Amino acid sequence: MSPLTITRTLPADATAAALRADVTHGLTRTPKQLPPKWFYDARGSVLFEEITRLPDYYPTRAEREILLARAGDIAAATGARTLIELGSGSSDKTRHLIGALTGLHTYLPVDVSESALAAAGRALLSDHPTLTVHALVADFQEGFPLPGTPGPRLLAFLGGTIGNLLPEERAAFLHRVRELLAPGDALLLGTDLVKDEATLVAAYDDPTGVTAEFNKNVLAVINRELGADFDPADFRHVALWNAEREWIEMRLRARKELTAKIPALDLAVTFARGEEVRTEVSAKFREDGVRAELAAAGFTLSRWWTDRAARFALSLSVRA
Score class of each variant (00 low, 15 high):
Ala233His: 00
Phe214Met: 03
Arg253Gly: 09
Lys284Glu: 11
Phe271Val: 02
Arg170Met: 11
Gly184Met: 11
Ala198Lys: 13
Arg178Met: 13
Glu246Met: 12
Val281Glu: 04
Leu174Ile: 06
Thr279Ile: 10
Ala233Tyr: 04
Ala283Gln: 10
Gly274Met: 08
Val238His: 00
Glu275His: 08
Leu265Gln: 01
Ile262Leu: 06
Pro207Thr: 03
Glu244Arg: 15
Leu174Arg: 11
Pro207Gln: 12
Lys261Tyr: 04
Ile222His: 03
Ala171Phe: 13
Arg286Glu: 15
Tyr204His: 04
Leu240Lys: 02
Ala243Asn: 11
Asp205Trp: 11
Val281Ala: 08
Ile222Asp: 05
Arg178Asp: 11
Ala228Ile: 08
Asp231Phe: 01
Glu257Gln: 06
Asp192Ala: 14
Asp266Tyr: 07
Ala171Met: 05
Arg178His: 15
Thr270Gln: 12
Ala202Asn: 10
Glu197Val: 12
Phe271Trp: 01
Arg170Cys: 13
Leu258Pro: 03
Ile222Ala: 01
Val210Tyr: 04
Ala203Gln: 04
Leu180Tyr: 11
Pro232Ser: 04
Arg253Gln: 14
Thr211Arg: 10
Glu169Asn: 12
Phe285Glu: 09
Ser282Val: 09
Ala228His: 03
Glu244Asp: 14
Pro263His: 07
Phe214Val: 06
Arg176Ala: 12
Leu240Trp: 06
Glu246Gln: 15
Ala260Gln: 02
Asn217Val: 00
Glu225Asp: 09
Glu246Pro: 11
Ala212Glu: 03
Leu174Trp: 09
Ala203Asp: 00
Trp247Ile: 02
Ala264Asn: 03
Glu275Val: 07
Ala264Pro: 07
Lys216Phe: 07
Ala202His: 07
Val177Trp: 12
Val281Arg: 03
Leu188Ala: 11
Asp205Pro: 09
